[in-house]
């Protein structure tokens, strides 16, 4: 192998054929209201954690829906479970439960 001074770059494309939707199925089984989300972002706008980090429940739900598992691994544990998002959601998603089961999905990823 030759060191050329440059290398191949990873493809950042979401590949829906390779991605696995096991997390979505697991969370849905435990908290079906994840499917109510319409990505409006009301949850994220008032999120206390979002002021200091990249946490956004809107984005995390989308990542789960696309099977982008690695993207939520660290973020999901930034949640302080303050519950502001629960009050905010116009569709009544049980956001606390969704985040809890997201964490469980990350912890138990190999068992899903």
């Amino acid at each position: 192998m030759i060191e050329f001074g440059y290398s191949l770059q990873a493809n950042r494309q979401i590949d829906m054929d390779l991605n696995n939707l096991r997390m979505l199925k697991y969370i849905r089984n435990n908290e079906p209201s994840i499917d109510w989300c319409m990505s409006c972002g009301t949850c994220a706008s008032g999120c206390t954690a979002a002021a200091n980090c990249d946490l956004s429940l809107r984005r995390m739900i989308l990542m789960v829906r696309r099977g982008e598992e690695a993207e939520i691994h660290d973020l999901v544990f930034r949640c302080r479970f303050c519950g502001k998002c629960l009050n905010a959601c116009p569709r009544g998603v049980n956001t606390r439960n969704v985040i809890y089961w997201m964490q469980q999905a990350v912890i138990n990823i190999n068992a899903l």
Binding site: I14, D15, R59
Partner: peptide
């Protein structure tokens, strides 16, 4: 995927 700001492909 404009809400994630990432290109996406699928068959």
């Amino acid at each position: 995927d404009t809400l994630l700001a990432k290109p996406l492909k699928m068959n």
